[in-house]
Design a protein around this nucleic acid. Structure first.
Length: 357
DNA sequence: AATGCGGGGCA
DNA sequence: TGCCCAGCATT
């Protein structure tokens, strides 16, 4: 089951590498403020360190304490999160900040179970906070750890299966037992990210190579194993930027779909890539837009590739002569549009059309 | 157990 | 292009 000799080789070499060769620097490293650790961990969920770094710095600058974050305006926080993706993280970030600030007297919870109970915090994040902030021996099991353990111990169990999660979590927990929790957890993730990388891992100089099962069996490139198949959906939209007296119709997205809590222009989702003429002659369009209006601009389709969706958006700028008869929509001055958080593909449209900035 | 959720970087 | 990234919530 557990080979204690392999285990001690693994932990010893890993900590040795961490002392000798780990030169990864990050602002939250050695941080002991639970608020900042929690913030960094939420930002880094499914997000590369390089991508999250600037967001983390902006957040700690603008919201240096959890109380400041708790008192913030929702749209302002989403604006700071804009472009980072997985926006439910931001929603949960705000909810948790308010619970800690107003219901826990600003005291961040300090037991694994109570940390795990926070919104947006799962097993990985709870272990990270418990170990980094409070030096408690909970092993982090993220993508880096799964890959490293699967390769070194030669484990072909799918990492996205229930049994796989149990096996890897149990193994990781055994490994951390007699190690310094914060240092060890930081080391194993840094090692996975910089040495035992997904592509082109540095096996020839790896301190673990002597006992690495995957290397011995030529399975480095095939481990870890994932079973879930990704289904990509193609979606086609028109976003109508309807302008009335220097103001634009906007709305916060509330439906169960991508970009929840971000703002949008008047959307028309089409079953396929259709022309603007086809949209204009459709009933759903004519129900909202009755002449007179001027078509000021029809963009080329902007394309965005998400993990599960490929999206094409054509932006249409309309100048209205009369206000629309729309419920649940508000008019936002053109000059103040950029105060609201929008999906990346919309901010790209802004970048290409400076009249909106 | 399966699905949905962003955006970007890399080979 | 396909895969992956300091995962989690919902169904």
């Amino acid at each position: 089951m557990n080979n204690s000799k392999e285990n001690s080789f693994f932990t010893k070499k890993l900590l040795w590498w961490n002392e000798q060769s780990n030169n990864r620097t990050m602002p939250w490293k050695a941080e002991k403020n639970p608020y900042k650790i929690w913030l960094s961990e939420i930002i880094l969920q499914q997000t590369r360190v390089e991508q999250g770094l600037a967001y983390y710095n902006r957040f700690v600058t603008q919201y240096p304490t959890i109380e400041k974050l708790a008192l913030a305006n929702d749209d302002d926080v989403f604006k700071l999160w804009e472009g980072l993706g997985y926006y439910s993280r931001c929603k949960n970030l705000l909810a948790t900040a308010r619970i800690v600030a107003f219901e826990h007297n600003g005291i961040f919870p300090n037991s694994y179970e109570s940390i795990l109970a926070l919104k947006g915090v799962g097993p990985y994040t709870a272990a990270a906070i418990a170990s980094f902030a409070y030096n408690q021996p909970y092993a982090v099991v993220d993508g880096n750890v799964l890959r490293l353990l699967a390769r070194f111990f030669g484990i072909a169990t799918p990492i996205d299966s229930t049994i796989g999660k149990k096996i890897f979590t149990t193994l990781a927990q055994q490994l951390i037992q007699k190690q310094p929790p914060a240092t060890y957890n930081q080391a194993i993730m840094d090692f996975g990210a910089t040495v035992c990388k997904p592509q082109l891992p540095l096996c020839t100089t790896c301190v673990l190579q002597k006992k690495c099962k995957a290397l011995q069996q030529n399975e480095v490139s095939s481990l870890p194993i994932k079973t879930k198949k990704l289904i990509i959906k193609n979606r086609f939209f028109f976003f109508v930027v309807a302008i009335y007296q220097q103001q634009v119709y906007v709305q916060k997205r509330v439906e169960k779909d991508i970009w929840q809590n971000l703002w949008q222009f008047i959307p028309f989702e089409m079953p396929a890539n259709m022309s603007f003429d086809a949209l204009q002659s459709s009933e759903s369009f004519q129900n909202i837009f009755t002449k007179p209006y001027q078509v000021k601009f029809v963009s080329a389709p902007l394309k965005q590739k998400l993990t599960h969706q490929h999206i094409e958006v054509t932006f249409v700028v309309l100048q209205l002569q009369h206000p629309l008869q729309l419920l649940q929509w508000q008019l936002q001055p053109v000059k103040q549009l950029r105060q609201l958080p929008f999906p990346r593909i919309v901010t790209q449209f802004f970048e290409n059309n400076t009249s909106f900035t």
